[in-house]
Each structure stands twice: as C-alpha cells, then as structure tokens.
Design a protein around this nucleic acid. Structure first.
Lengths: 165, 165
DNA sequence: ATGATTGTTTAGAAGATTCTAAATGAAGGG
DNA sequence: CCCTTCATTTAGAATCTTCTAAACAATCAT
C-alpha cells in the first residue's frame, strides 16, 4: 500500500491479466493471479499475505501454492526463526516453460503416440491385406494423425527450438 | 455397428482419448470426442448420427459443431436433396494446428505483449531515474517476462517452425 | 395452407469446480 | 505440558459449466 495510484492500478491489471490467462488455458484463475503476485513481489510472501492480497481464504492459497510449486513455477522458501512458509516465484519464465509447460505437452504427445500406434495395429490386423473400404480410410487418417503428432514431438525436441527457448 | 469387436473397442478408446485430451486442455470433452468421431468417419455425418453415436442430445451437438467449425477443425457439408447438415473433419491435423491452436496462441501472446509494455511504461514513469528499491526489482522482472514473451512469439513465426508444422 | 423434418435457442436441471469456515495436525515457546 | 501460531484437510456452500427437454424457427413436400 505504499505505491501511488497509477502503479497500483498497473499492478492490479497485471494480476487480473494473469487470472484471465490462466482461465483461458482452462486452469483455475487463482493460480494465474497468485503467480503474478509472487512474480512481482520484491521478497518472498507468506500464506496470509497472499490471502490478504487476493482477498481469498488461506485454504485456497494453500492448495494453489502447492499446485504451482508442483509445476515448478514457485518455490517454498524458509526463513530462519520464522515458522511460516514463504513463497517466491521462479524468476526465469523460460524455466517454467521448460519444466512446466513443454514437459507436460511432451508427455501428452507421447501418450497420444502410444494410443495411436496401438489403434493402428488393431486396425491393420483387422483389415489384413484389404486396401479398400471404410476401414482403409480410417487407417489412412490414423496414420496421418500419427505422422503429424510425431512431427510436432520432434519439433519440441529439436535443438534449435530447445536453444531458442 | 458393422465392425467386429476389437476394432470397435479401439475406436471407442480413441474417442475417449479425444475427450480426455480436450478436458486436459480445459475445453469441453464433448468437443474432443466429436472431432475424433468425425475424423475417423468414412463420410460426413449428420447431427442425429453424431448425437446417437455419442449418446448425447442434439442440442449439445449443435453447439459443439458450431464451436469446432469456428476453430476450423470441422466443416459443414451440403448434400443435394437432403435438408440435413452434414459435417466432416478437416483431414489435415496441421491445418487445425495452424488455424486453430497457433493462431489463438499468437493472439494471446500479442495481447500479453501490449499489457506488459503498458505496465512497463507506467512503472518507468513512476520511478524516473531511481534504479533502486522495490519498484526497480519489479521493473526488472517485467522486462524479463516481456523479453521471454517476445522470444516465444518470434519462435512461433520463425520460418523453420512454420515449415516444420 | 398443413404437416413433417431439421437446426437453434432457452430455461432450468445436473454435475463439476472452486471456495470458505471449521476441524485437525504439527511444531515451538513458555 | 498447555498455549499459540501456522498449514492442511474436509464437508459443504457458492458458483460455473454443461447438458437436456421443450419451445421455436425455418424449410420443404404434399
């Protein structure tokens, strides 16, 4: 509460934008807001400060911090002689991208790949030899989808991409 | 209903996986299921067939098809002499990536960029000259976040990436 | 026109998610 | 030990999303 009005306003808008962004990706908007608060904070903050700042119960903050910490977006910080847990944001957004977002994406792609290949095997076995009919179309589509998936997966691991991010 | 059991099972699992994937990205799982049904179908399907296939009301299908069509993932198809609307999937997943996913991502990044830059201007104006204190840290973080955002945005437009996808 | 068929809108039911307050747990200081 | 202070869990309230049935609109055939 030490800032004059325009910066407070700007800060408030950034927090709100964090919430909207989170929501637009289908995650709890509180996670986005919480991360922005920590990312902009000059020092680690405790649960009560976070709850106060966002006007939300401590229970919500407790859940939210654990989730964000699980993604590597924030981390717990101990202060000697203080029993409270403090949290600070991972200050390098690229770290979060790598460890949180891209990792999760890669896992999804891998899982989809296994599923595709299993389905392709099943359909190949069912339509042995025959290259016509509905199931041939379906197989074609499946193979096409799998090829694209593999391409995207490869792109994510490409050194150039890895280095740029 | 013409397939023997293992392929039916495989097809069912693909539809389910589509639903789970959609849900994991925070969108209505019906959209994912619906897309898979259409993507694997040997011919365009009408609303009633889709509702029947997924065990869901026609109203839901009506909303879902419109949303998917809006993303360019499926398209409406007319059959002469038939009053029903038929739908088919965009058969090239890369097209969907480009027009649906990457486009939306780019728009989000652009919007975030504008917001960052506006906030940076506000804080610069508030802390003119001074390079110490809490607001200096905050400005530093903001600039770092914006730099990363710009890098990701550039990566999405990089010809190499564009070509590979 | 009238009726039949199809797609859309809408009001509210059903179901998830997210939030809070209160109970519980854990740990340190007196 | 008991008391205080914090974090977590949990049960249920509040809110949001998604779904359906029914009303409506539009279009074609008779």
């Amino acid at each position: 509460m030490n800032s004059p009005s325009p910066t407070r306003q700007a800060r408030h808008e950034l927090i709100d934008a964090g919430g909207r962004t989170a929501a637009s990706f289908g995650v709890n908007k509180l996670l986005g807001q919480l991360f922005v608060v920590l990312y902009l904070a000059p020092r680690p903050l405790c649960l009560d400060e976070l709850a106060e700042e966002l006007g939300v119960s401590k229970a919500s903050i407790s859940l939210a911090t654990r989730q964000l910490a699980g993604w590597g977006a924030i981390r717990r910080v101990w202060r000697k002689g203080d029993r409270r847990d403090f949290y600070e944001a991972e200050e390098d957004p690229r770290q979060i991208l790598r460890n949180g977002v891209l990792d999760a994406l890669q896992r999804k792609l891998d899982s989809a790949g296994r599923q595709f290949q299993e389905a392709i095997r099943t359909f190949e076995a069912a339509a042995k030899g025959r290259t016509d009919g509905d199931e041939a179309i379906l197989l074609d589509r499946l193979r096409h989808a799998e090829a694209t998936r593999a391409k995207v997966s490869g792109l994510l691991q490409h050194p150039l991409v890895r280095r740029m991010i």
